[in-house]
Every structure is written in structure tokens, then in C-alpha cells.
Design a protein around this nucleic acid. Structure first.
Lengths: 129, 129
DNA sequence: CCGTATCCTACCAGATACTG
DNA sequence: CAGTATCTGGTAGGATACGG
């Protein structure tokens, strides 16, 4: 799937090059849960339970796993207050804020153009009741 | 995974709602191949072979499959000249052009911020040679 | 409250071979 | 050239139960 870069030029950002880290990152980020979590954090820090309720359909497992990946990419900051019961807060890093603008722009566009994309399309399960 | 919308309000665009078609669309679009194909078509129509060469690492299977999905969403137009040998050209629809702007913006941001996201990170296979 | 661990399944997606 | 068809392993991701 992802291959180790073999020369210095592979380190430059080019999503079209299979060996570039940029391809690795776009692979990681191109999941619905990554996009939705970053979008959800746009208005400020949120806790685990808040995210679970806000992002309808996400499981605890996928939330934890995806947030961990986003933290490794330095897009999300995890703040553990070390209390009992636990109090953990997630927020976007400055880097994450930059990405958030792009992702929110994408998400809002999708929401605004849903009808155009699904109309007259039998393979998309849209049902106006 | 995706559930049929059960009331009219579910048809409005809200990616955070599991039953909204917008969620279905973001699920479909959040794949590396969808993002890369739409990005690749930004400078004009391309043929099957051109896309194969331009998008390093994509297989014929995934290209065909993903482009079919994008065509169903009315984002990509497939033009078959009905000749032998075959001559098929893919291009963005007007709707696809709108999405392309958002996706390219996202891709360029990723490329520009690769270094910041991967530095000091052992779990991301970056190797400066 | 915020996780982890385990099991289990469906589908993603690469490899390969074949077609008009 | 631009596909289709089939096989297969790998992994995403849900369900469930447990833990600090």
C-alpha cells in the first residue's frame, strides 16, 4: 500500500506520488470519521461524550482510534485533566485549524449540493417522504 | 452502515446526521481515489490511460469503479467516442468543478503542511535520505 | 467518564487473467 | 485502449464486555 520514500525528492508534497508522505496523509485523512471529527471541533474544544453525541453513528472505538491518529498528525490536541472520573478535552491545534477551514468548506459544499448529486439517481438511497 | 432516511427533514444537508444523504455522499467522497481523481481532472479532460499514469499507484479496477461512482453523483462526465480502439474521455461536470475547488484546496494544504504533520512522528513512515 | 480488549464480519482493494 | 471477471488477503469497523 504505502511504500517508504526512497529519495529526498519523495519528501516534497505531491499527493499524486504514491511514495510521498503527502499520499500517506491524504490516505489517513480521507475517512468520513476524520473529516467529521475535525469539522465537529470547529467551534471549540469538545469532550469524548459530546463528540459521540454530535457525530451521529460513530462508535467509541472509531472515535478513539481516529482521534489518536489525528493527534499523531498534530491536528488535534488531547488534554487529560487526570481526574476521577476522567475529564478529557479535545481541541484543534493551530495546524488543525488550518485544515479545518478546508474540510468545513468541503462539508458545507456537500450539504448545499446534496440534492443536485442525488436527484434521479436510483443507486443513492434517497427517499423523500 | 447507511440507513434510509425516515422523514423529510432527513433530506436536508447535515453530514453529522447518520441518515442524511449528505452523510452518504461524504462517505463515498472520503476515499483517496475519489479525491485524487477529481483533483487530477482540474486542468481539463483526461483519458483512462492518462489518469492511470497521472495518479501513481491506482489500479485499473479502482479507477473504473471510482469514476463510475463519481459519474453517478454527477461530478464526472464520461464521454465515449464509440470507436475501435476505444476512445473515452473523462471530465468534470459543472457540479464537479465546484467540488474540485474545495478538494484541490484541501490537497494543496496537505502538500504544503506535510513536514509539520510528520516531523518527530515515528508512526508515519517518513525517511529523509 | 473515558476508554481497552476481543471477537467477528463485510467490504475494500491488489493481483491476475481475459475481452471487444 | 478501455475496460470486465474472478480470486484472495487484509483491514475497516460494528457489537459486546470489561476496567480505572
Amino acid at each position: 500500500m504505502y511504500e517508504m520514500p526512497k529519495s529526498k525528492s519523495d519528501v516534497a508534497g505531491d499527493v499524486f506520488c504514491a511514495k510521498c508522505p503527502a499520499r500517506y496523509l491524504i490516505t489517513k485523512l480521507s475517512s468520513k470519521w476524520s473529516l467529521l471529527i475535525i469539522d465537529a471541533l470547529k467551534d471549540g474544544p469538545m469532550r469524548n461524550g459530546e463528540l459521540m453525541r454530535f457525530i451521529d453513528g460513530i462508535s467509541q472505538k472509531m472515535l478513539t482510534q481516529t482521534i489518536k491518529e489525528l493527534a499523531e498528525m498534530k491536528l488535534v490536541h488531547r488534554e487529560d485533566h487526570q481526574t476521577i472520573p476522567p475529564h478529557v478535552v479535545y481541541s484543534l491545534t493551530p495546524l488543525g485549524e488550518g485544515l479545518q477551514e478546508k474540510i468545513c468548506s468541503l462539508d458545507r459544499w456537500i450539504e448545499e449540493n446534496v440534492i443536485a448529486m442525488v436527484e434521479d439517481n436510483n443507486s443513492i438511497p434517497l427517499k423523500l417522504i
